[in-house]
Amino acid sequence: SPRFIALCPTSIPSSAGEGACIEEEQRSRSELRERFLRTLIKMSNKPVNFDMYEGVQVRAKFGASDIDVLNFQVSELQTPIGVQKEALLRCHDMISFSFDV
């Protein structure tokens, strides 16, 4: 899949040294990814502030994310021109977002 090609380690291990290197990369990737997934789970149903491009700032309740981190489902989105009950935000439109735990 395209997702795999983008993430895939570039070299095939041909020696024990490179194999250990791949293993370290796998361990590192697992820990980082699990922590990120747990962050998204923690964010469920919480109010989140989004800083987006073009100086746009909005607030919404976080619902769910796809695993490729491309789209967020949110509800009660407070836009500059009113509230949209359900919405899909593009992660590429965002610079950062924040919430309290």
Binding site: E31, L32, V69, S98
Partner: peptide
């Protein structure tokens, strides 16, 4: 730094004000 997502390279930053509360910011 709590983590860096290996899929999107997004950073999860945490600040710890007093008490049990924490503020989480994710930079894409």
């Amino acid at each position: 730094v709590f983590t860096v997502d290996p899929v999107s390279a997004s950073m999860v930053l945490v600040t710890l004000p007093e008490g049990d509360r924490a503020h989480v910011r994710v930079v894409l």
